[in-house]
Each structure stands twice: as structure tokens, then as C-alpha cells.
Design a protein around this nucleic acid. Structure first.
Lengths: 337, 337
DNA sequence: TGATAGAATGTAAGCGATTACATTTTATCT
DNA sequence: AGATAAAATGTAATCGCTTACATTCTATCA
């Protein structure tokens, strides 16, 4: 039997049971307007009794804003998703918003309507590449509050973006290696076309250039931010006998994969090959040797995206780019300081 | 300015522009009823032109089911959240449902109304401990489709539950250690009160008993499923000079922390202390030594929870308990086979 | 060509809340 | 006690959509 069509108490049922009008019930629910304590108690009791919960759809229609923001993210098992969430949610809750998440595993596949949109949320935070440009354009045209995470706005759309100093972080990492005397520095690039990865590559190349070290394309390995693909890339270098004395990985997962492949091939880290990663995931500290890496202030990224979105939702202007600083965390994998 | 109150096209705007009635527009949107191709095209055009998206709240009110299921989970950065999601979503999408997520970081703190409820979703999947018993009872009383993940239903509530064979997995792990001749087997219990952890502890104790090895409370260390707390627990054992030749960790994070502490103290793994974990997170393979552990079919857990929920949503009866099998993955940390 | 079935479209009643405005009750002051 | 302001409550319009039912086309057939 269709469960949902019956038995659900409405505001009217509550009103009847409590012997008041629906308006009064609405007032006690929303704590606006004046209601006598006695009446209010009676209403609350009726709500309890009937197991009543307001119908959000109806509320929205009746004019109230949903007080809800949506976060749309790809299904990539980002190890920092939960920190990001924490940053976003903390700020949002402070301001009285709820947060709903939609993971767009198979974007584009089913061109249905998004379950999170301008009607049921006050704003959207969109993680890198989880929405098509067309969709972004639609929202933008609607002047619907939107913030992009780890992704710059497509050409011509003025949508605020929050991310970390990818380029600078990469430069720092590479500089650190160069300062230690390494010259043959390979780069594990992560996912091709991913914005974070691209900026990190730019940082890598610029820093090389700054020190007059020629860029060698064969020293760049692509993958997908996973240990497996990095492992394969490193094995390939080893196989081809390419001379490498250091690796800068665009993410810690890849760094881990690289370590694994190197150690299996009998290379010592950092004596034979030094490694620096990017992200500082929880595990970096526990790798052996522990991984020198670039830490990103993920929680801050979350918080700032919420801050920008809130501005937008209040009708204020938001900063079109928020760049959060990264930190070099020196551990053992890069050779002692 | 309040962005959301204006400029949003309604079905009526579309109808006007396309020169048809709202009923017709509704028909083309929902692909039910008959509409002439020519008309339909005109409507689609108007939708495009106006950037129109239906108001989900209004749709629900007007009777259509939302075709949406909600997943409620705690903020714990479960390393397998993304796999779980994949399992759930894949199945759900097959059946034409959308999935919306709500992370209940600070449950109980703000006793507001859940943003996911019987009005805007057809069913809910609830991850361990993310809803209060009272809330569960409310849904249950409403006969609202509900499936619990990694958590048994509270006393008296008949809510289907999907989880893995925690006890059996733990037994297997411990048996493996015992079979290798280890006698002083410590247990890193993870979070006290967590159901998974509890079942794993029961498995540990039963297996000990089965081999006539007395259970020693001082060999159980509690933590919170994190490497840090496990590290501390192990350090404590070391400090107290407790004799341990193997550790069974209720999760891989803890196993990692344990390894770290042991190695820092100069112990060799597995020669001095063997370790077996639980979960088989991505990193287990990359630890050094690589971690022997119990693998859980996370994706299947997700898929089965979706399957059970779908039954419920169709008004069929669901299995009150689905127990998915675990696997022993033998690597290096437990001593060679 | 007129009748008729089926396709295409339209009309209008609800769905469950909120809220401006109207009304009644209560409290306060002279 | 009577007037009056403030508090408490009620009335009813409204939000955007779906859908049962009514109506109008269109094509086909005798």
C-alpha cells in the first residue's frame, strides 16, 4: 500500500485537536507572533500526540524561505570531504541554515531536474566539476546565490570561488626540494584537467624555471589522484630507467603510491628518491617515512565558502576569489633539514 | 535585495509563453498524458527560454511523490563513506530515485525539524547513531520506510537493519592470530558503545574463549577509531610493560596508529608484535608492513540497504536483518602464512 | 458528408502551510 | 465602571503544481 498518502497529520489536524486555528499553530511552530503560554502548550501537546512535522514543501510555497543551502559534490572519495563539511556546516548552522548534500556521481547521465535548486534552497555550494557549465549558467542567470569550490567560474560567469593557493603551495614544495640539492624532480600530476592539479603543475614548472632547471615532459606522470595510478606511473619511470632523485606529488595518495613502488624496487626514501606530497591527509604522518607535504586549510575552505554564500544570500556582494594559504609540513620523506 | 522572491518563472509563465494551459505544460514535464509533438516542442522551448525549473515543494503538495530518498549520517569521516554512497546511489538511480544526504554533525543540539522527512522523501537510510531513538520511533510510528545501517533497531521498533558480520569477522581475525601461535592478543576496541565495535569485541572474546585463552581486561584499549587514540593506548601498554605479542584492532586507523607507536618504540612488526586490522581501507595495502585485515563489502552494504528500502517503499515486507560477509585479507603484518 | 472515437487540450479543485488583516479577549488606567 | 491599548486568536487569500473531468479537435468510416 502507498504508505505516504495517508495518516500524515496536517497543521489542521493539530489545530483541531488543540482547539485553535491553524494560524495559531503556525505561530507556535515558528515562534513568531504572540501566543499565550497555555495555548502554546496545548498546541505543542497536540503536535506530540499526532507525531506532526510540518510539510516543508508547503512552507516554502507559503512564502517562507527554506533556510537551507545545498552542497553539490562529485563522488570522488575525497579524504577531506568530512573536514570540508565540518567547516561549511559549522558556519551555516551559526547562521541558522540547514545543509543538504547531493552527490552527483553520474552527472549529465540523467538530465533530470536537480533535487537541489532555487526553489528549495537559498543557495548552493558547488564542488569542483559537479555541475555542467550550462547548469551553472542557468543559476547565474537567475541571480541565484552560488559559490564554487576548487573551481574557477566558467568564462563570463561571475561566480565567487573559494580555493587554496595551489600554485604557491606547489612552488614551495618544489623549492624545498631544489634547496636540498635535488635536480631531477618528477611530478605526479593527478587528474588531468582538474583545476587543482593544473595549478599545482604550473607552480611546479614556474619554480623549476626560476631555478633554471629545464622542464622535462617525460618527468610528468598523470593519474587520478589515487595510489594505484601513481604506482603505475612510477613503475613506468623505473622501467624506462629515467633518472629521478625526487618526486613532487600533486596529492598524498599519489605520494603514497609512489613510495610503495619505489620501496618495492629497492629504492630508499629519501636517500635515493625524496618525496613531497600535497594535502596532508591524516595518513601522511604515519607513512614510513612520514611524508613531507603541503597542508591545505580544508576546514577554512569550507568555512569561507559558507561565508561568501551567506553574503550573497543577504544580497551583499561576495569576493570573486578567496585564496587560502597552504603550509609546508616538513617530515622525513624529503631528506632531513 | 531578496533574490528569490521574484523572477522565478512558474508553470503559468511557461504556459502563457507557449500558449497552452498549465495542464499541458505539466504533461510534457512529466511525460504522462498525450501531447502533440508540436505543442510539446513549443513548451520545451518556453521552458528553456524562461530558465524554468519546477518547484519541488509545489509538486509534492500536488500529490506526486518526491521520488527521493534521504541518507542521514554522522559527521565521522568514515573512510568508506564514498563507497557506501556509491552502492546506495547506484541501486537507487536504477529505480529512479534521487538521493539527498544530511550529515547530522551536532545531533540533538538543535531540536529543529529534520530537513529530510516523511514529507519530502519516500524513505530514509539512517547510518549508525545519527538519529535519536525518539526520532526513529516517530518515523516508525508513521510507518515511514526506514532502513538502519550498522545499527540495530532500538528495543521494540521493527526497523530493518543492514550491516556486516562484525562478530564473525573479528573471530576470524583472532583465530588467525591464535593459529599462528600468538597468545597475548590485545584488542584495540575503537569507540566504546559503537555497535560495530561491540560486536567485534564479542567476536574477540568468544574466539579467545573457544581456545581457552583467558580474557584480560587490561589488554583492551578504547579509543575513537582514530590513529591518534590507538597510538596513545599502545604507548600506555608499552609503558606499563604489559606483555603483548599481537594486536587485533577494531579498525584500520587504529591499526595504523598502533604500528606507528610500536615501531617508534623499536618493536618489529610482525616479529615482535603482529597486527590484524578491520575494514581494509585503501591505505592498508600501503602500510609497512602491509596490513592484514578484515575486508567489509561496503558497496554491498550500500546496495542492500537500498534494496531493503525499496521493498519498504513499495509496501512489501523487508528483511529485518541483512548481514554481509567479511573476508580475511592476509598481508604482512600478521607474520607469514 | 455526418457521425464518432480517440487524441489533444483546457478548467478548476485541491495539496499544507504562512500571513495580512480583522476580530475578540484581557489588562490597565482614570 | 467605562474607555482604551495591547495581547491573543481567527479568517481567508495565496504560493506553484497535478489531475480528474470536461471540452474541443481531428481523422476515419459508413
Amino acid at each position: 500500500m502507498p504508505q505516504n498518502t495517508k495518516n500524515r497529520a496536517t497543521i489542521e489536524d493539530v489545530a483541531n485537536l488543540a482547539n485553535v486555528s491553524t494560524a495559531t499553530v503556525s505561530r507556535v511552530i515558528n515562534k513568531n507572533g504572540q501566543v499565550a503560554k497555555k495555548t502554546s502548550d496545548r498546541v505543542l501537546e497536540a503536535i506530540e500526540e499526532l507525531n506532526y512535522t510540518p510539510h516543508s514543501g508547503a512552507r516554502q510555497m507559503a512564502g517562507g524561505r527554506p533556510n537551507l543551502v545545498g552542497l553539490i559534490f562529485p563522488a570522488i572519495g575525497d579524504p577531506f570531504m568530512s573536514e570540508l563539511l565540518e567547516g561549511i556546516e559549522t558556519k551555516l548552522v551559526e547562521e541558522g541554515y540547514d545543509l543538504l548534500l547531493y552527490s552527483s556521481q553520474r552527472l549529465g547521465e540523467s538530465p533530470r531536474f536537480l533535487p537541489l535548486n532555487e526553489h528549495n534552497s537559498d543557495g548552493l555550494i558547488v564542488f569542483a566539476d559537479s555541475l555542467s557549465d550550462a547548469e551553472l549558467a542557468r543559476f547565474h542567470q537567475l541571480e541565484f546565490p552560488l559559490v564554487l569550490l576548487h573551481q574557477n567560474a566558467p568564462e563570463g560567469l561571475d561566480i565567487p570561488c573559494v580555493t587554496v593557493e595551489n600554485k604557491k603551495g606547489a612552488s614551495t614544495a618544489v623549492k624545498h626540494l631544489i634547496d636540498h640539492g635535488y635536480k631531477n624532480i618528477a611530478f605526479l600530476a593527478g587528474l588531468e584537467g582538474h583545476e587543482d592539479a593544473e595549478w599545482r603543475e604550473i607552480g611546479y614548472r614556474e619554480e623549476l624555471a626560476k631555478h633554471n632547471i629545464p622542464f622535462r615532459p617525460e618527468l610528468v606522470g598523470y593519474g587520478d589522484f589515487s595510489a594505484e595510478t601513481a604506482e603505475a606511473a612510477v613503475e613506468n619511470w623505473l622501467l624506462e630507467g629515467i633518472n629521478i632523485d625526487a618526486i613532487f606529488a600533486a596529492d598524498d595518495n599519489s605520494a603514497q603510491g609512489a613510495m610503495f613502488a619505489l620501496q618495492r624496487a629497492g629504492k630508499r626514501i629519501p636517500q635515493d628518491v625524496a618525496i613531497v606530497g600535497f594535502d596532508d591527509i591524516t595518513f601522511s604522518r604515519y607513512m614510513s617515512p612520514s611524508l613531507t607535504t603541503i597542508r591545505m586549510p580544508i576546514k577554512d575552505v569550507g568555512r569561507h565558502s559558507a561565508i561568501q554564500l551567506i553574503k550573497l544570500m543577504k544580497g551583499e556582494k561576495a569576493d570573486s576569489l578567496t585564496l587560502l594559504p597552504t603550509d609546508l609540513i616538513i617530515r622525513d620523506s624529503c631528506g632531513k633539514d
